[in-house]
Structure formats: structure tokens, C-alpha cells
């Protein structure tokens, strides 16, 4: 395991990106950080800049307006970086598939920027905090 990978897995700092979610997934993301689930005890912490982040938590379908920003945010994160797609929308545009403002799915947008991106899918509408934590654990043990 490279030094970069080893350090990535130690305490994962996350940056939360909403690219057109209905806000429900975002509430669950915040819920994951509240004392009940308290993922900070695993070193998982929300940070205010993608440059400080080891992982992106992406929610939403990827609207025309937002994907331009998403590409830029992904470019700015330190690599290696794990992209967590939270919710049915982010995993494959969900109920908004074919909508007039949908440019996603988000995984394709990320792969356009970086074909080797590490992408993890956490489906659900919205996924429970338990599902997100389980997703994080699975990814970190697979790396």
C-alpha cells in the first residue's frame, strides 16, 4: 500500500457537494455527523474546502448548472480521493432520469474528469446514515 493510500484511510475528511439533490439526502448526511451516529470518532469530519478533503460526498442528480462546479471541485481535491455518491439520484439520476435539467449521472461526469476515479455508490432515497457508514467502511476495507 502506498503512503498516500495508507494516509487516506486513516481519518477521512469529507467535503459535501450538492449537485441538485432534493435536500433530503443532505439532511441525512448531516444527521450522520450528529452525536447519535457521531462519525467524527472515526476521524470522519466535514471540511469547508475540497482542498482539505479525502472524500467527496455527492448528493443529487447533477444539473446542468451544477456539474460544471462539480468537475472543478473534483479537480481541486487532493488525490487519491474517494467519491461517495449518496442516494438514488447521485447513483443514477433516480426519479429525475430524463428530466430537462439533468446532465448526470454523476459517475459519468466524474469519470470524464478522471477515468480512474474511486467511486462508491450508496443507494437509497435517502440512504440511512447506517448505510452511509457501512459504505464508508466497505470502501476503506476494499482499498
Amino acid at each position: 500500500m502506498s503512503l498516500k493510500m495508507w494516509s487516506l484511510k486513516k481519518s477521512v475528511w469529507v467535503f459535501h457537494v450538492n449537485v441538485g439533490a432534493c435536500n433530503n439526502c443532505d439532511i441525512e448526511v448531516v444527521n450522520m455527523l450528529t452525536p447519535k451516529y457521531d462519525v467524527e470518532r472515526f476521524g470522519i469530519k466535514l471540511v469547508g474546502s475540497p482542498r482539505h478533503a479525502d472524500a467527496l460526498l455527492v448528493t443529487g442528480v447533477g444539473t446542468h448548472q451544477a456539474v460544471i462546479r462539480l468537475r472543478e471541485v473534483y479537480r481541486q481535491t487532493a488525490k487519491p480521493c474517494v467519491v461517495f455518491l449518496i442516494g438514488a439520484c447521485a447513483c443514477g439520476t433516480g426519479i429525475f432520469k430524463g428530466g430537462y435539467h439533468v446532465a448526470g449521472p454523476v459517475d459519468e461526469i466524474i469519470r470524464e474528469v478522471d477515468p480512474d476515479a474511486i467511486i462508491a455508490y450508496v443507494p437509497g432515497c435517502p440512504p440511512k446514515p447506517e448505510a452511509m457508514i457501512s459504505g464508508v467502511v466497505k470502501v476503506l476495507s476494499a482499498l
Binding site: 448548472q65 432520469k97 430524463g98 428530466g99 430537462y100 435539467h101
Partner: peptide, 23 residues
């Protein structure tokens, strides 16, 4: 709507082609 959305295309009009196909 997005900054680059074309002028004069109104997505919630029933006759709007972008409505169902996506763009």
C-alpha cells in the same frame, strides 16, 4: 435555470420538447 439554458425554451410548457427527452 442554468446560465447556458437557451432563451425562449420554457421547460414546463407542455409543448416543450426538452420536457421528456432531457437535454
Amino acid at each position: 435555470l442554468a446560465d447556458d439554458w437557451p432563451e425562449g425554451v420554457y421547460p414546463l410548457r407542455k409543448a416543450c420538447p426538452e420536457r421528456s427527452e432531457g437535454t
